[in-house]
Design a protein around this nucleic acid. Structure first.
Lengths: 234, 234
DNA sequence: CCAAAAGTGTTTTGATTACACCCATGA
DNA sequence: TCATGGGTGTAATCAAAACACTTTTGG
């Protein structure tokens, strides 16, 4: 996947363990994926997910967070294990399994310079390039997982700025589900869950009237979870 | 997890890759788990899931099926990847990550002798012994996954014999959800899905009147899936 | 003053839940 | 004949879906 760092263990009879990150963001009504142009042979110049070998003294989750930090500058990102890809011929040359993890980031917060340095680019999810190895498969699996999880957990909020409007939230869910939602029903449902709090500010970037800003209330979400949740947006 | 087979690579700076199988069965109204008594040091005599190192020339899925075959004699078992456990200190002594896979088997079909030879035992899932390492965590995660999946996919059928009665199926779902279900509603729902076929035979082992046997219809299930499924039992 | 997005309630529909009695049969 | 589990229908409840107009304000 990336460079082999230690020739001592570059024996053919070794199993390499990597992690690849599927990084989602949301911007201007579109769900996007962060992909990278490989700087090293083999497959130099091809588009790829960002990944790394898992260090011997490193938890899996920590490896994922490290990769995120190195490429976007973000820490404590929402990240979840997706699946481990282990076809014996998935990586020509080495036997390498990869634990795929997907991350949701707030596009307004990441470090643009750092991302550029890594030769990265945001692609809309329905306009992705061909990626190396089984990375397109990983992305498709992650999208399915995201759709599924968004129904039962408020992970959508991870993709929005701290303060967001209800129309923004709806637009995010429309992007995830890839279908339109009824504004009245959506608002009703979201508010009934009691997990977002209305603020006194308005966002006026998308309309003259302006839309009220809200923020996510983690405490109420935890309570909701405990009291036998029926959290199901859209 | 199991014996280190090749001393050449028993270097400390190596990452081992194992797979552990969470094997569920269903018998007499109880959901059960197959656990094994370790025959080797370290931790000899302790209860454990059955696992193995993943071979270099072996797909992950194949490794799981191999373990199943070796211990129960069963082939082509329903098996699904659960999660990869990769805390750096999960296995004292080695750095070893384990891809957990869970299997659903028909208790009436497995090879009892083979299982006994491996020092295995079925435990009811709410009466499990302490297992080595993070294996109890794996089992709990698998149970959650099983509950979740059983709602949306007909995986329950994997745990029953080819021919089964509706009361048996209900009892299985009750075991999975750990709560009682209404017989009329359950029957109505299951039949409405059109994925089981009534046979002309009756099973008389549990009542004098006897209950009609049914079998699962995979074709109809596939059709149901394509036509925007609303498969949700219980 | 008007275009464009934000915000608001009610009715209809469909699905889930609750619930009680008759049936068949071997012992 | 009776105890035991198998099998059946209907009404009540709840949640989701469909649907149209008013409000605000910068240009």
């Amino acid at each position: 996947m990336t460079q082999i760092t230690n020739d001592l263990y570059q024996v053919k009879e070794k199993m390499y363990v990597a992690t690849d990150c599927i990084i989602f963001g949301f911007h201007q009504g579109k769900l996007k994926l962060l992909v990278f142009k490989r700087k090293l042979e083999p497959l130099q110049g091809e588009w790829s997910l960002i990944g790394s070998f898992v260090q011997l003294d490193e938890d899996l989750e920590v490896a994922g967070q490290r990769v995120l930090k190195e490429t976007t500058g973000l820490e404590d990102v929402f990240m979840q294990q997706l699946k481990t890809y282990g076809r014996k011929d998935r990586d020509p040359g080495y036997r390498c399994i990869s634990i795929a993890q997907y991350a949701l980031i707030r596009i307004d917060e990441y470090d643009e310079k750092l991302v550029e340095e890594h030769g990265a680019r945001w692609y809309e999810i329905d306009d992705l390039p061909v990626l190396i190895l089984d990375h397109n498969e990983m992305v498709q699996d992650a999208l399915l997982q995201l759709k599924h999880n968004a129904r039962y957990k408020p992970i959508g909020f991870e993709l929005l700025p701290e303060k967001f409007t209800i129309p923004q939230l709806q637009s995010l869910y429309e992007a995830i589900y890839q279908r339109e939602l009824d504004a009245r029903n959506f608002r009703k449902k979201v508010l009934s869950l009691n997990v977002i709090e209305k603020l006194d500010e308005k966002d006026k970037t998308t309309s003259k009237r302006g839309a009220f800003l809200y923020k996510f209330n983690y405490d109420n979400y935890q309570k909701l979870l405990k009291s036998g949740y029926n959290f199901e947006i859209a």
